[in-house]
Design a protein around this nucleic acid. Sequence first.
DNA 1: GCATATTTCCGAAACGTTTCGGATGCCGCC
DNA 2: GGCGGCATCCGAAACGTTTCGGAAATATGC
Lengths: 340, 340
Amino acid sequence: MATLKDLSRHLGLSVTQVSRALNGHSDVNEQTRARVQEAAKLLKYQPNISARRLVTGRSGTVGLVVPPPVSTDGHAVFVEMISGLSASFAQQQVHFLLHVINPQEDPVAVHRRLIDSAALDGFVITDPVMNDPRIAFLRKRDVPFVVHGRLGDKNDFAYFDIDNYAVAHRLTAHLTGLGHQRIAFLNGVPGRTYVESRLRGHVAALAAAGIAHDPDLHRNGMMNRNFGLTETIRLMLPGSCRPTAIIAGNMLIALGVYDALQALGLRISADVSVVAHDDHLPGATAESLFPALTTTSAPLKESWGPMASLLVQALDGQPIETLQKMGGIAFFDRASCGRL
Amino acid sequence: MATLKDLSRHLGLSVTQVSRALNGHSDVNEQTRARVQEAAKLLKYQPNISARRLVTGRSGTVGLVVPPPVSTDGHAVFVEMISGLSASFAQQQVHFLLHVINPQEDPVAVHRRLIDSAALDGFVITDPVMNDPRIAFLRKRDVPFVVHGRLGDKNDFAYFDIDNYAVAHRLTAHLTGLGHQRIAFLNGVPGRTYVESRLRGHVAALAAAGIAHDPDLHRNGMMNRNFGLTETIRLMLPGSCRPTAIIAGNMLIALGVYDALQALGLRISADVSVVAHDDHLPGATAESLFPALTTTSAPLKESWGPMASLLVQALDGQPIETLQKMGGIAFFDRASCGRL
DNA sequence: GCATATTTCCGAAACGTTTCGGATGCCGCC
DNA sequence: GGCGGCATCCGAAACGTTTCGGAAATATGC
């Protein structure tokens, strides 16, 4: 309600000086600055962001444009993402605009409108695909953005990602270390970057152990429980050359693997070793399975804070090379693996 | 990128007139208006909302301040709410700001900051409680808002709600019509308005059939599967005077009721009739149960569109009395009830 | 033909902030 | 005493839009 003019009148200072005092500029007496800040608190001064953004050209608002989640699996990720981002941006004093589009709508057009009306000055991009039109557009318009994930080799933008190569490498090496040779890998849908990175890490770890990669043991699919179940059953068909260990791309797949092995009467660890990567989505924890599941661990919920920081730094004009961050992964050796 | 000044130069008109033409004012020649609109399209003119909101004092943005969802049950509602609201507001050309607070934070303080910085000009209020401080604050500051649900009798604000009295009345009357006298009601946590409304509707329908309400048959609790399961078992304990029919407050409760009756060896419909209210949350559909569940139906997802419209109308200064809307309820008689 | 509406237009001010360029006073220094 | 340097301040312009009050041109009524 109170404006700069009110403050300046109240303090006997110019509007200019009040503004500079509050914004931490150097040419203002420390004593005056204190007075100004006190008065601001007293009069409950809140800067009018419309006025500010009009002159600075920046809105103090970032946005996320997404289609609504489809499956119930998607719900958990959606909730975590939305609430994580919103809370993180709030902490950084940045407003978070959410625009849920219907799936037919063109996301680029929405981004364009949002930019042209000067409503937003930065974006979060999730679920990037190869040659993503959103990324191309934002780059062309020179609008800051941060991507959750990466694309192939050329990543000349701010991103946060986990080291998916390392994930698969670590899991595979753990199994080869126990003497396993025939290791199945239930990976995600082909084309997604993290799926390809994991495949590379997997193959590299096999090679390091002197094992040739058998394409038949590598399966792609939607990362849900059903995929884990059906593929495990197919892998274990009598007559086929069974794997002695299975890597599950996430916890849902792992649940399906457990279901299938149990149904087939195979003992986990004793007969078949199982490992998985754990995003820490609600619903399935590695410790609560029986036997407790050995995993690499990289909680998805820990990405949103860094994502927000990166975007804010990008808004502040920091060079992109300093804004590429990888989340760490941990490894928990539990009870689901046996030595061969 | 293009501004009004650009347009006015390009058209040989004053900035004033261009603005009025675009905003549909009356004192502009229809022919000129057409020219202006064409030029606007040509130059890809997008009004700078910061400038607009600075002079109008309105931001074209509404907000929702919520804590993150807790349980996995809450996820489905959260997702539906967030995506429904966002999409609906987008359709109405209103920006939707989401602010997820941590549960300790004071929501009123957040609302205050958002208002004082002129960032938002309207709010959506969900999960209202009696004497809600958010509502009191927004009313005091004379900021438009719309509430999902109602509070007791005094509702001098815009709201969207379903007729919970009618829901319980309808379900109860259906059962009394089949000759049931001892009807249990598994209702939500006490204090919530819809819970109380439902109780009133229930009691009224009983009275209309000449049946006295037995408080022992009315149970309150968290509306989840476990509540339905445990309360049904307690209701059916041998020695107690068993109900012949059960009303479940929502589908999760109904799932628990089905589980319990099956476990107890009681046949649904033949031994015990079951009805429920169905919010159409993903995960449980009334038709897919066996036997198919008789329900009142009021999809939660149909509230967000009306909610958005109501808030937009409130922003336009429409009188509150015209902004109180009730969602309709449907009744589906399926296979879960038997005549006594 | 004159006064009065009506239609269509415009200039200027205003919203609240940031920032550019300059002003003022004071200090020490030669 | 003059001069440069520093610390501290201020006036005015600018951002892009809406709107108030009025002006000009045209139509209407007698």
